[in-house]
Design a protein around this nucleic acid. Sequence first.
DNA 1: TGAACATATGAACAGTTATTCATATATAGA
DNA 2: TCTATATATGAATAACTGTTCATATGTTCA
Lengths: 120, 120
Amino acid sequence: MNKKLECCDSNVIHEEIINQVKDKMPKEEILYDLAELFKVFGDSTRIKILWALDASEMCVCDIAALLNMSQSAISHQLRVLKQAKLVKNRKEGKVVYYSLDDDHVRQIFDQGLAHIYEGW
Amino acid sequence: MNKKLECCDSNVIHEEIINQVKDKMPKEEILYDLAELFKVFGDSTRIKILWALDASEMCVCDIAALLNMSQSAISHQLRVLKQAKLVKNRKEGKVVYYSLDDDHVRQIFDQGLAHIYEGW
DNA sequence: TGAACATATGAACAGTTATTCATATATAGA
DNA sequence: TCTATATATGAATAACTGTTCATATGTTCA
């Protein structure tokens, strides 16, 4: 019950494949960043915001009204989206307008939708 | 301080835009499913598993060895990936081999990477 | 300057999630 | 049948996350 610290109790089964795959894997850091990016997409509030901004530039209050959520909640999420460099903003007096800051968002959404609709 | 239940304290600023965007938004349910899908991508362990399986079919023990993680942790995550219809498996004796079950994974990854690398 | 308002932000809380641990299931071989 | 082994799974825990609430910041206008 304490024979190997490696993986499961047994030895590796297919050592060649493991080494082969290991060579093809991107650097740990890249994969981490990729997961962090998708984590940002993994919330329906943020998905809605991105979708809305893909249709039109909007101010915080408008987004809150559109999604029927508090101004604070939206503001917090916009900060997350901005840190991920997915949205940008411009200020006009008191009002802050947000818009998409990425060309890939739409394509990522489309691929995601393609998966969801697949086989139905 | 209690004038409107809507969004923030004020009235909606750009009502036309809101209605216009509202019409363009996909159904609530679709956006929820989309977020659920990306949530699955939003974990570096699962990202690594998917990347590995994109390179080669592998059994549970091999994946655990490759990622230097416990068999149990990998098995739990494979279940999540299978529920999301991102991987499939086949049994050969005691050994269960997992492989990708989706054509979009690679493209979603590529778009994600494109975003990460953008502007550097 | 002061009131009104749009937005941002910190703390707190509830809900979620990834891993570990122990154990169950299933299969192969003796 | 008994043992070894590959995988699955339920419970528990620690860490993380989204929203709310209260409040701060910054801008306009009177």
